[in-house]
């Protein structure tokens, strides 16, 4: 019995003394551009930073590490994941309650499928953050952003950037509240832009 207690105590003490340091979003960031963008977002009060080709989902309740395996397992079956990242293309961060999906460039983001899989895994997705690099278009008075590589369309809500139509932009956006639960197949996904990371209008200003 003493041996068991000694083992347990040693294991516990070691885990406390030598914790693995994980970045709040669970990733290692190597690019100075990313750091600048993150700092810029943080300065504007946006606490989520999305790397290019990543999709970040804020999920209520995903703090139960052993049961989060179900969400990770289900999401890892999504088409278009870049499985060279995070081992299977999916990173669950229980500290921030965010799930990051690494998408292969040129792949459409299956917003509704992501929502459905997380719900079936027992959790409640509350926000989806995207990084979109593409061209602004104006269709029927609506401002659309077409992803340069996948061709996926996003409808930009609440922005007066119509003067930038035709220009290439790189934005961090979030899917309009609850829209990710019921996006019609092929319809533009309504998003709010949190940050115009690179665009000539910003540069002019």
């Amino acid at each position: 019995m003493r041996g068991t207690l000694f083992f347990a105590l040693t294991f516990f003490a070691a885990s406390v003394a030598f914790p693995v340091q994980t970045h709040p979003d669970g990733k290692t960031h190597r690019h100075s551009d990313s750091e600048k963008s993150r700092a810029s977002l943080e300065a504007e009060g946006v606490d989520v930073f999305v790397e290019p080709h990543h999709t970040v989902i804020q999920v209520n309740g995903v703090v139960c590490s052993f049961c989060a395996y179900g969400a990770e397992k289900s999401l890892s079956k999504l088409d278009g994941l870049d499985r060279s990242e995070f081992g299977n293309g999916v990173l669950v961060d229980i500290h921030t309650q965010r799930i990051t999906l690494a998408m292969t460039p040129g792949t459409e983001i299956p917003i509704e499928d992501i929502h459905r899989r997380i719900r079936k895994a027992g959790y409640d997705p509350v926000a989806v953050y995207l990084r979109i690099a593409g061209t602004l278009e104006s269709v029927g008075g609506n401002l659309l952003l077409k992803d340069a590589q996948s061709g996926q369309l996003f409808s930009i809500v609440g922005s007066d950037r119509s003067r930038a139509v035709g220009q290439s932009v790189d934005v961090q956006a979030r899917v309009v509240d609850d829209a990710f639960a019921s996006v019609n197949d092929g319809a533009p996904i309504p998003v709010v832009v949190d940050k115009w990371i690179s665009d000539s209008v910003d540069n002019d200003e």
């Binding site: 347990a8 294991f11 516990f12 885990s15 406390v16 914790p19 693995v20 994980t22 669970g26 590490s65 989060a68 395996y69 990770e72 995070f86 081992g87 990173l91 669950v92 961060d93 229980i94 500290h95």
Partner: peptide
């Protein structure tokens, strides 16, 4: 308490 968890490997301990 849950003193250790690694997101990348989904590994951890509870005491």
């Amino acid at each position: 308490i849950h003193p250790y968890h690694d997101n990348l490997t989904n590994t951890g301990i509870f005491v």
